[in-house]
């Protein structure tokens, strides 16, 4: 698999506080990588480090295969855009002027992409309105537009939906999906609003206390989180025969246990098993989602 960003044993210390500890993560090309963690888990620190705003204390990261210790990293940064915490926009300028300003920073030969980008983020009709007077959602979208002006193929969005109203959340979500699906841009998006992230991400990285505890694709997560009944039986061979007959999706997890996916009518299952001389010893319904998966993974005891 081709990765846009990888980190290897990355650490960042602020005096006595270790914000990142031996962090290792992999962002596949073309993915929307949801970076999940509590407040203070180290999400923003990692983003600051990979954006070059802060130097790691130890370890390294590679951007398009180029190590941060290599001088060529500056060149590979031209291929990325970022909105870190708050959008980076001049408040006393219009949306168009902000994009022109960033176009100059990037040394773009012309401003011809500006109308297209403004349209992409839905700010084409803002005219002479200064960014200062934009709503939070508009500012966020302008921040994304600024990140997009250099035609990057990797953008980093740190908590892009924080503080947005429902309409703003939908707008930003649709924009991110559009960028990923239509323009093939890889997105790293950090958030602790898991419900929203689950509508976007194709891959997840779960961070706790400065350490990535698990990386998983959305498909794998879906499999893990599928609604299922965990059953314990006296004879799994008999269970397999019954489930095959009932055309159920299942997974045998031990000599006596199996997960049965989808809707299961327990009385039918018990009768069918009885015909095979097999006893149903126990059954537990499991209904995990991203939220419960995260809580189970990092432990829900501590307050974030």
């Amino acid at each position: 698999m081709e990765y846009v960003l990888t980190t290897s044993a990355l650490s960042k210390k602020y005096r006595n506080f270790e914000a990142l500890k031996d962090m290792t993560m992999h962002i596949p090309k073309g993915s929307i990588y949801g970076f999940v963690g509590r407040n203070g888990a180290g999400k923003t620190t990692l983003i600051r480090v990979i954006c070059g705003l802060q130097e790691p204390t130890s370890g390294e990261y590679t951007l398009y295969g180029i190590s941060n210790k290599d001088r060529r990293i500056a060149k590979s940064r031209h291929r990325m855009g970022a909105v870190v915490e708050t959008p980076s926009i001049y408040l006393d300028m219009t949306a168009e002027d902000n994009l022109k300003q960033q176009a100059l920073v990037l040394g773009l030969p012309s401003y011809e992409r500006i109308p297209e980008i403004l349209k992409l983020v839905g700010l084409e009709n803002t005219g002479k309105k200064k960014a200062r007077h934009f709503s939070l959602g508009m500012k966020q979208r302008l921040g994304i537009a600024v990140a997009l002006i250099g035609n990057p193929d990797f953008i980093v969005l740190d908590e892009p939906i924080n503080g947005l109203d429902p309409q703003g959340i939908v707008e930003v979500r649709e924009l991110i999906l559009k960028l990923n699906h239509e323009h093939g841009i890889t997105v790293l998006i950090s958030s602790h609003i898991l419900g929203e992230l689950s509508k976007l991400a194709t891959h997840y990285g779960f961070i706790e206390k400065g350490h990535v505890v698990k990386e998983i694709s959305a498909a794998e997560l879906e499999a893990v989180c599928r609604r299922c009944i965990k059953v314990e039986v006296s004879d799994t061979k008999a269970l397999i025969r019954v489930l095959d007959r009932m055309k159920k999706d299942y997974e045998v997890i031990s000599d006596t246990q199996a997960n049965i996916y989808g809707v299961v009518v327990l009385s039918e299952l018990v009768l069918a098993l009885a015909e095979e001389k097999c006893d149903l010893l126990a059954s537990h319904e499991q209904d995990e989602n991203l939220e419960t998966y995260f809580i189970n993974l990092v432990g829900g005891g501590e307050n974030g």
């Binding site: 954006c51 070059g52 705003l53 990293i73 500056a74 060149k75 590979s76 940064r77 031209h78 990325m80 855009g81 970022a82 870190v84 915490e85 708050t86 959008p87 980076s88 926009i89 001049y90 408040l91 006393d92 300003q101 960033q102 920073v105 990037l106 600024v146 990140a147 250099g150």
Partner: peptide, 18 residues
């Protein structure tokens, strides 16, 4: 100071300016 308060200093660093 505006570059700091508006966050635009970051935009320059993120795109690789020394």
């Amino acid at each position: 100071g505006t570059e700091y308060s508006d966050g635009t200093m970051r935009s320059k660093v993120v795109v690789g300016h020394n």
